[in-house]
Amino acid sequence: MRITADTTVCISAGMCALTAPGVFDQEDDDGLVAVLLPDPPEELRETAAEAVRLCPSGALDIR
């Protein structure tokens, strides 16, 4: 699994960090998405994938 974020698209809705807090965070300085675990361990993959689906701006990609 490989999760990437496009910070030029992110609108900081926070759905990712809310849904999968171990995988995503929001930067302190600009509020934009930070991917903490681009290749999350097995037990976090389902919530990580859900977080990607819930992203309203389409800033997240999963492969």
Partner: peptide, 15 residues
């Protein structure tokens, strides 16, 4: 829209 929204988003993060 992004130009204006980005002036505000730091104030509305989860943290």
């Amino acid at each position: 829209h992004s130009f204006y929204r980005r002036m505000l988003i730091q104030e509305f993060t989860l943290k």
